[in-house]
Design a protein around this nucleic acid. Structure first.
Lengths: 364, 364
DNA sequence: CTGAAAGCGCTTACAG
DNA sequence: CTGAAAGCGCTTACAG
């Protein structure tokens, strides 16, 4: 191996002109054969081969930056996350999305550029400079609950192809999201079918579309099943749940629905309150989670059962976003650019018929 | 947003020459003031202002692609994994490494290219063509237990900077690994201190350096503590553990040490055998794992306790590999290019004093 | 203090 | 079938 690594003069990467010299042709010709361009189809097979050989021998690899400057594609897709791509503390909640993106990118022969600009600033907001860098890729996937509008607008205006992972409100923005509305409504329907009429829906203060959609679904589901809507929606930052839980029990609430976000604050707070009160699910209280938590945290408190509710098809969202982005890059017409994927219902065992009226689970 | 995404004609973005025209200066001057370059410090304040104003008015935004081309070096680090980067089935075992890499890359202002070449071919072996692609990055991180030598050699010869994550045997190859030898020896010492003399070490057939190191550490630890070495090392592919376990108990074995690999075959097989035999750890049998499994699988069988053994500092390995790679890229002298990071011992509650001789846990 | 020029490594008309 | 030339939008010596 020689110690090429240390101080060893690094040999300059070969470029097309090097190949040209070796093969005895012009740089233009090199570019033509290397791109396998269909325009200058008429290349002598022998010339072609000579160029190919030289390129192989020199270990040529096209420079993606130069390629992009000259306005061509380079088989690289970007992924820009408006929060650390690999969060430490968030229990890897978004890992499956990354997995899906990587999987499909690989299947399509695309490399993936992870743009790290956003994670640097602790804010999680993408700073404009780092956002601009995404242009070295052929197109970019965006992802994160909170996203700055302006820089993205810029990209859109310039015709740079991109796709959001997660539904967006802005018109004309391509995205692949999850159908939280239907899935949430279905959960309420399930609760109603089990006999619950007085339910609480716990959501965080977050304003993201995914939260709004869940709430809409919950309300829609409640209305269509005759579940009480008064006092149904409760906002929390994850604290003060002990008191809330107590008041709910006083009011005869028999089931609680929680949204699962990246912070997991609401669910964590509720879980703690339930444990503290010594309640058992679903005997004392039915529980449903909108959007299944990932990994080890997917256990219901005091039971070991898996939460009832629905799964977010994160992996599939990642995959589909890659497919859509590729379509946009190739300029395909008539592609559906706003997609909602169905969420799989999960019958996890935390929903049961309501406890008999008048029975206070805390006195047992 | 106009429908810029689909075929819409896009307005040309302003460039430096536009500013130059408006401000009545040369494009060079524009570049100078915009970069705030320290070299051409001597810019008339008035000129400077004029340029700044024009830039502001035109809404100028530098083109990152052009900037990079001109500046040489593209602030991209590669990560090439000799297996799917985001495995589905392997319980995300390597996730923390990715997290560390991403974290440090972000801190250093580097973007990350995930090369997907290796995952495409089901083989997990990187095909030479895809491997060559890594040259588009300024340098590359390699990762995976089994790695093809030849293409890497090529890269080294060309002076392309790279770093392995995980120890390598080849001389002169830069790496950041874990000190499995010391950590494994320490585990044996702990077992000996608890009173165990007859121990079995279960490893897979795998030949990777990380496996070899663990075995070496186990043997070293056994020798220095008077633990029996005869029959100590046992190889398995994860099957036939029921029989093996029975024979060990017959032989008076009181503790088992298992290596944890990416497949987890040995540990999974052993765990199943233990459960099947109805043994409880550590009462009936002490257990230690060399290299902690990740996430939900980190629970010991029949107990719920965390495994004793040690943690692999994956996140820190990722971070440190990025740092080292950056040093190599900048051509730093006298850098330690072969690093082993210490593994944190884990006292997880699966090690206890040996059961009394003659007590057969299976008859209780 | 400022500008003309070359160059980063490619692609793409346009001529032969 | 192949090459000379211009251009993508910047940066960086090098001259004035």
């Amino acid at each position: 191996m020689e110690n090429a690594q240390r101080g060893g003069r690094r040999r300059r990467r070969p470029r097309q002109s090097d190949i040209a010299r070796v093969a005895g042709v012009s740089q233009t010709t090199v570019s033509l054969v290397l791109r396998g361009t269909t325009i200058g189809m008429s290349l002598a097979a022998e010339t072609r081969q000579r160029v190919l050989d030289a390129a192989e021998r020199l270990g040529y690899v096209p420079d993606p930056v130069a390629t992009r400057l000259a306005a061509a594609g380079n088989a690289m897709l970007g992924l820009y996350t408006f929060s650390a791509t690999f969060p430490t503390d968030v229990a890897h909640s978004y890992y499956p999305i990354l997995a899906g993106v990587e999987e499909e990118a690989a299947a399509q022969g695309q490399d993936l550029i992870l743009f790290t600009g956003s994670s640097r600033s602790g804010t999680g907001a993408g700073d404009p400079a780092s956002l601009r860098r995404v242009r070295v890729a052929d197109g970019c996937l965006f992802f994160g609950r909170h996203v700055p509008d302006e820089p993205i607008r810029q990209l859109a205006e310039d015709g740079f192809p991109f796709v959001y992972i997660g539904r967006r409100n802005e018109p004309d923005v391509p995205y692949v999201g999850a159908d939280y509305v239907s899935a949430s409504a279905a959960v309420l329907a399930g609760l109603a079918a089990a006999g619950h009429r007085r339910v609480r829906y716990l959501r965080e203060h977050d304003q993201a579309p995914s939260s709004a959609d869940r709430e809409e679904g919950v309300l829609r589901g409640a209305r269509s099943t005759g579940t009480e809507t008064a006092g149904l929606v409760v906002r929390t930052d994850g604290t003060g749940l002990n008191g809330l839980l107590a008041s709910w029990l006083d009011d005869g609430v028999t089931a609680v629905v929680v949204e699962q976000t990246d912070t997991g604050a609401a669910l964590a707070g509720l879980g703690a309150a339930i444990e503290r009160a010594g309640l058992r699910c679903p005997r004392d209280l039915s529980l449903a989670v909108l959007g299944a938590p990932v990994g080890a945290r997917g256990r219901a408190p005091g039971g070991g059962a898996v939460f009832s509710g629905f799964d977010v098809p994160m992996r599939e969202m990642g995959r589909d976003a890659v497919r859509l982005l590729l379509r946009l890059i190739e300029g395909a017409e008539g592609v559906e650019t706003r997609r909602l994927l169905p969420c799989e219902p999960v019958d996890g065992g935390t929903i049961a018929p309501p406890r008999p009226p008048g029975r206070d689970p805390r006195r047992e």
